[in-house]
Design a protein around this nucleic acid. Structure first.
Length: 616
DNA sequence: CGTCTCACG
DNA sequence: ACGTACGTGAGACGG
């Protein structure tokens, strides 16, 4: 046995690295005693993040409590795998930091179904930390990584195990990308840090529990968030089918398009279309006047500026108001094709597994409001104005894509939370909320343009926006927006009252606002007006969360693919798609504060793009 | 690594 | 007193 010692909060702690069958017996002996005392902290070291990649390996599995850690060298096989499996199968309670990652690693590479590890067997300290304070360090919070949490709650001198290891990688001639796979299994720092992580984890957890209690965060959120973590981990494990032939052809086509328009830009002296500086200089040289500036003071040449110079609307429709500037048009087109190629098409091909599926990481508590995010690839942000990217992702063989959306969920949530009388009446009467508002502002027989304005103002109210921004977003003259907003405030006075009340309560509560589901959200002191948006966005996220729980209970989880804020994407058998669509709608429909939350399913074809105009 | 830009809800 | 657009992930540039 190799044993490393280290001092944490003044205590001498031990990291044991078994080398013989007798050492592993000692581990099992410790495990049985420790399991009877309380939860066992669990972590894994692997070759990287690409859990579903062909060459991915599990390297070590670590178990520990506040004083002792055991680093089991899974990679050595035989007895080591046997001992780790025995522990993984027998332990009553685990603590994991960022459980979905280790669940999926152990599910895929150790044959332990993630369902068997789910709550209450596993408590995820990252979930506890997010419920205590969801802010990232750059937002003024502690952060949600084990390192800052350990430094804050346990020992300010706790090592930065991940950061320090990258320095070790460099000293071995390895990089961040290759180090995790190639660092020798017996490397002392690697083993020490692998062990210290579980010891720190075991020590952080009681502090997080105490903080949740002290702050009065609603206790049932802990179980709720663990259920969502399990559901989204299952979605990640399932993944989506990639049309690889289509995606390869798309990558080439977008590359050609980007190159072709970059060549045009080069003729006007722009060597690099992604350099704002070069583009601004060339446009000025052609006699264009650029007036808008960025926050940093540079001349702004974003999509809105370039499309205007190219005589196109934000929807890329020709305007006929000026002679299009050919450089501006070439730059926007080349940038768009280049981004779609690199951020989407290429990432699909980089992340696809051997079976042709993509397994995006779903972070169930990403935003301060509790909103979820999806990365590698960022499937919540695929272009919706054009189907070409979504066309690459398919329902399973024999299935079709079904997208079920909440109808105007944020406005309905606002109506419920702020108890907006006229909005609630309109919803109860089955009215379209934007039609209803437009009629109140402009009377019956309103125009499309007027509806667009009122829809913009409605969204603006949810976001806390002003007249200037709303005017810019909707393209409506600012005076018209001002008038509509004033009318809006008169029609729905409860919204302002709601904002005032929650700003006042947050100030009296250390700039923390408590949501309808019992979430504690920190508010920035200089942006207290954002409280309405935080309340609404957070409650809407929990409406989605509730829908996912209901879908799981209804047996629909195997068909779910992605949560997208106000939408659930599913892959269902073609022959029964109508039944599935009805069932998905049923699971999403609910009531909040006396307001009906409605949902509508759209049945597509094989590809996700079929819901955006593609014919397959 | 900060800034800018752009994709989404 | 007034007014403030909210939340993400990701790529490219340039110091």
């Amino acid at each position: 046995m190799i044993t490393y010692t280290h001092r944490i909060s003044g205590d001498l702690v031990r990291v044991n690295v078994p080398e013989t069958p007798e050492d592993l017996d000692a581990f099992i002996g410790w495990l049985i005693e420790a399991d009877a005392r309380g939860p066992i902290a669990l972590d894994t070291e692997t070759t990287g993040l690409d859990i579903f990649g062909a060459s991915y390996r599990l390297r070590t599995v670590q178990f520990g409590d506040a004083h002792t850690a055991w680093v089991i060298h899974w990679e050595r096989g035989g007895y080591f795998v046997g001992a780790a499996l025995r522990a993984l199968r027998s332990v009553t309670r685990f603590l994991i930091h960022n459980a979905p990652f280790d669940w999926l690693v152990l599910d895929r590479h150790a044959g332990i179904p993630l369902e068997s590890l789910a709550f209450p067997r596993t408590v995820d300290t990252k979930i506890l930390a997010a419920l205590v304070d969801p802010r990232q360090p750059q937002e003024g919070g502690i952060g949600l990584s084990l390192k800052p949490l350990s430094a804050y709650y346990v020992d300010p001198s706790a090592p930065d195990t991940q950061g320090d290891l990258t320095a070790v990688f460099r000293s071995l001639g390895l990089t961040k990308a290759t180090g995790w796979a190639r660092i020798p299994l017996g490397h002392p720092t690697y083993n020490l840090y692998a062990g210290l992580d579980v010891i720190l984890l075991a020590r952080v957890e009681p502090h997080l529990r105490a903080e949740l209690e002290r702050r009065g965060v609603r206790p049932d959120l802990v179980q709720y968030e663990h259920e969502l973590a399990r559901i989204c981990s299952v979605m990640q494990r399932t993944g989506l089918v990639l049309d690889e032939d289509y995606t390869r052809a798309l990558t080439d086509a977008l590359g050609d398009e980007a190159e072709q328009f970059a060549d045009v830009a080069a003729r006007y002296g722009v060597a690099n279309i992604n350099s704002g500086k070069q583009v601004a200089e060339a446009l000025c040289g052609m006699g264009e006047t650029l007036t808008e500036r960025t926050a940093g003071g540079a001349l702004k040449v974003d999509k809105a500026v370039l499309l205007r110079l190219a005589d196109m609307s934000l929807q890329w429709e020709p305007l006929g108001t000026r002679t299009p500037n050919p450089l501006a048009e070439a730059v926007v087109r080349s940038k768009r094709a280049g981004k779609w190629r690199s951020a989407y098409a290429e990432t699909f091909l980089e992340t696809v597994d051997d079976a042709g599926r993509i397994h995006p990481f779903i972070s169930t508590l990403a935003a301060r409001t509790g909103r979820m995010s999806i990365t590698r690839p960022a499937l919540q942000t695929l272009p919706s104005s054009d189907y070409v990217i979504r066309r690459a992702l398919l329902a399973d063989e024999g299935h079709v894509m079904v997208s079920t959306d909440f109808s105007a969920v944020e406005l309905r949530v606002l109506a419920a939370l702020a108890d907006v009388r006229r909005m609630k009446e309109a919803i109860a009467a089955g009215r379209d909320l934007h039609d209803f508002t437009t009629e109140l502002v402009f009377g019956p027989g309103f125009t499309k343009q007027q509806r667009k304005l009122c829809k913009g103002v409605g969204l603006s109210k949810v976001y806390g926006g002003g007249a200037e921004t709303t005017a810019r977003q909707t393209g409506v003259p600012v005076e018209d927006v001002r008038r509509a907003m004033a009318t809006y405030d008169r029609l729905y006075p409860e919204i302002r009252r709601f904002s005032n009340r929650h700003q006042r309560e947050a100030r009296a509560n250390g700039m923390v606002t408590v949501t309808v589901t019992g979430r504690h959200l920190p508010l920035d002191r200089d942006r207290a007006y954002a409280v309405t948006n935080y309340q609404v966005q957070s409650a809407a996220r929990d409406v989605l969360g509730q829908a996912l729980l209901t879908m799981d209970e209804a047996g629909l989880l195997p068909f779910l693919r992605l949560p997208i804020h106000d939408e659930v994407l599913a892959s269902v058998p073609r022959a029964e798609s109508a039944d599935f669509a009805r069932e998905l709608e049923r699971c999403m429909r609910m009531h909040l504060g006396g307001v009906a939350i409605d949902a509508e399913a759209e049945i597509g074809g094989r590809s996700w793009g079929s819901l955006y105009g593609a014919d397959f």
